[in-house]
Computed example of a mutant assay.
Amino acid sequence: MRPDDLNGGLVAAEAFSDDERAAVYRAIETRRDVRDQFLPDPIPDNVLRRLLDAAHAAPSVGFMQPWNFILIRDVAVRQSAWDAFSRANIEAEAMFPEEKRSTYKTLKLEGIRKAPLSICVTSDPDRAGPVVLGRTHNSRMDSYSTVCAIQNLWLAARAEGIGVGWVSIFHDADIRALLGIPERVEIVAWLCLGYVDALYGEPELAIKGWRQRLALEDLVFQDGWGRK
């Protein structure tokens, strides 16, 4: 298609080159949830801006763009977050069967204190008003859109040699109080970011025997649930 054939803001949608396509798939396939391998080196402002730009370029239902990104570098704030996580982690360990608890303890979850930057990603359900195109019949679409922004950031970070860890073990009220987040705003993720010089070749939970990757063939159905 020639540029002069396009109108209404459309641009040509050619496929990527082989090298470009390979780079995208490499980022996807080698992305890891980093828990303990962070280096102390700070992330330069221009690199951080690229990551945030990537997140902000995510798709969002009704173009609501419900996300906010709270950048946390202060050591005292991160320590308070780690304290909240630590309390919740003790509770979490007790929820698993006895035979799983020893494995659980081997999963080092030190990202909040070791990574030089944390980002609390939130979702504002009121960003686009009370009635949002595409959210009329599924009230969770703002949250799902925010998760798309997180994945964009994660893949961009992988391309930059930056590790990301998603912390989800905490009581919502503790983080809300720590960061002054309004009640109407949803906390979607606490992310730990920092440079890494090594990543697991496979997901850490698989390597340590917690859970293995499911076979894709068992997850794909045709024209209805359970139809393979």
Rank of each mutant, 00 (worst) to 15 (best):
D174P: 00
D83G: 04
T30V: 06
E183M: 04
F63K: 13
L117N: 08
G161V: 02
K100I: 06
L109I: 12
D36E: 15
H137M: 08
V188M: 08
Y104S: 07
T30Q: 04
S145N: 05
D36G: 12
G9M: 07
G201T: 09
N138Y: 08
T146M: 02
A94N: 12
E183D: 15
I72W: 00
R50L: 15
A13M: 15
T30M: 03
V167R: 09
Y104G: 03
Y104M: 11
G9R: 05
L178H: 09
I72M: 02
A156D: 02
G161N: 03
F16I: 04
V77K: 01
D172H: 07
R211W: 03
E204Q: 14
F38G: 01
L178Q: 12
R176V: 10
I112K: 04
G165A: 00
A115H: 02
A58F: 08
R176A: 07
C120E: 05
M64W: 08
Y25M: 03
A206G: 04
K208F: 07
I181N: 01
V75L: 01
V196Q: 02
S118E: 02
A189T: 09
N152R: 06
D45S: 15
R32A: 06
D74T: 09
D124I: 02
P3A: 05
H171E: 09
D124E: 07
R127T: 06
A57S: 14
W82T: 11
D126T: 13
A55Q: 02
A189P: 08
L39D: 01
S102H: 08
Q37I: 06
Q222L: 12
E202K: 14
I169Y: 04
A115N: 02
L178P: 13
D5R: 07
L179I: 04
D223L: 06
C148T: 05
W190Q: 09
D124T: 10
W190D: 08
V164N: 01
